[in-house]
Simulated assay, not measured.
Amino acid sequence: MTNKNVLVVGGAGYIGSHTCMELAARGYTPVVFDNLSNGHREFVRWGALEEGDIRDRARLNEVFEKYAPVAVVHFAGSIEVGQSTRDPVSFYDNNVIGSLSLLEATIAAGVKAFVFSSTCATYGLPESAAIDETHRQSPINPYGRTKLIVEQALLDYSQYCGLNSVILRYFNAAGADPQGQIGEWHEPETHVIPLAIDAALGRRPSFSVFGTDYDTRDGTCVRDYVHVLDLADAHVRALDYLLEGGDTVALNLGTGSGTTVKEVLDTVMTVSGRPITVNYADRRDGDSTVLVADSARARSVLGWQPRYSIEEIVQTAWKWHSSRNS
């Protein structure tokens, strides 16, 4: 295969930029398509940047014609759950209408391989300790529902249009490039580890724990944190799998072991050597007690294995956040 161009839609964002780094390291040429609404121009370091919006078919057609990519990796979308309940219209516009526009352009260009960045939010409230891909999909917020709609479209497009896809359902993406070149940069930030690090750095006065009476080992929620480079590795493996003739499949990406909120705080304090002021508050509506992935299928189909522990996740995140001036 002489042409190894891969269109990475949303490639200037957190997981997309780390995936571009991994694609370049493994012989592909990432081409980033991003409107920079959530992504960062500084994160586009391993290939061309084409600015544009996935709802703009004419612009998409130009980029497909210019680069003739062998595959598409789709990260672009609105991701903040709370915002999705306040403004569901924009989530449906961006995540659903935008994705369908991108899929239409992909099929029109004759591309047959598509990797989709999905989420464990498509499952809704967990019905088992570890969630596998057979778990009922019943999302409880507009964010999860918009991702599920795109998953369902991909299954139809696979069956009737010849577009094979790998649907990757992440649990909690965390960490940063160990070299500190890129990392997690959201505005506003809503994720646990960056918020805890900001509290340790004095960039925010305290860290809030929502609920201390859950049925867990220390009363706080349990989540499955997976390093962003492990996610990037899974995307490149998914691409290899499709280009080698693999069929459409949905896969969970997590470590299979959960970490409580208190354990995250303890790890951040240990790594940073700094105290964190903690505020304890009531539970939030919709927060699950435990969200942990069963990723056996990803191991079987892709040979994927997460490599980073929670300590290493926090160490890489600390290096990134503590080196930034903001």
Rank of each mutant, 00 (worst) to 15 (best):
Y160S: 12
S323T: 13
I97G: 00
A130F: 10
R324N: 13
L155S: 02
S101R: 00
S90G: 06
F91S: 07
I97H: 11
R324A: 13
D213T: 14
V271Q: 03
T2E: 13
R307M: 13
Y170C: 08
R57H: 07
L7K: 02
L201N: 05
T316W: 05
V81C: 02
A24E: 12
S323F: 02
V32A: 06
A293Y: 02
A25R: 13
R217A: 10
V292A: 01
G254L: 07
E312V: 00
D294E: 09
Y143M: 09
A109S: 14
Y241P: 01
E62A: 12
E133L: 11
L7V: 10
P139D: 12
D218Q: 04
G245P: 00
V6D: 02
A24N: 03
E263K: 06
V192G: 01
R284A: 10
N61R: 15
F210P: 04
Y28N: 06
T119R: 05
F43M: 06
D156P: 00
L239V: 12
A58T: 13
A281E: 15
T19S: 12
E42Y: 00
Q137G: 01
P30A: 14
Y28F: 15
L155A: 06
S37D: 14
F64H: 01
L49E: 09
S295C: 13
G273F: 03
L302W: 03
A113N: 07
G124N: 11
D177H: 13
N325K: 10
Y160F: 14
L155D: 13
V249P: 02
A199N: 08
A71Y: 05
T277R: 10
A71L: 10
I313E: 03
S288M: 03
E263C: 03
V31M: 08
V81I: 15
L163D: 07
V226Q: 01
V290N: 04
D34T: 07
W318Y: 10
A109I: 11
A105C: 09
E42H: 04
V8N: 01
A129K: 11
L125N: 07
T259Y: 01
L100P: 03
I131F: 02
I193T: 08
L242W: 12
N35K: 12
D213E: 13
D230W: 06
L168N: 03
D285A: 14
S322P: 07
S118K: 03
S84C: 11
I182H: 00
R145W: 07
G162M: 08
I197Q: 02
E312H: 01
A281D: 14
W304V: 08
V63S: 05
H321P: 00
A24C: 05
I107T: 08
W320F: 15
R283H: 11
D287T: 12
S165Q: 05
V73A: 07
T212S: 10
V70S: 03
L195F: 00
F43W: 07
A109N: 03
L23A: 13
E42L: 03
G39T: 08
C161Q: 14
L100S: 06
V314K: 00
D93Q: 12
V222Q: 02
S257R: 11
E80Q: 12
E42N: 08
T260Q: 07
V150G: 04
D282E: 15
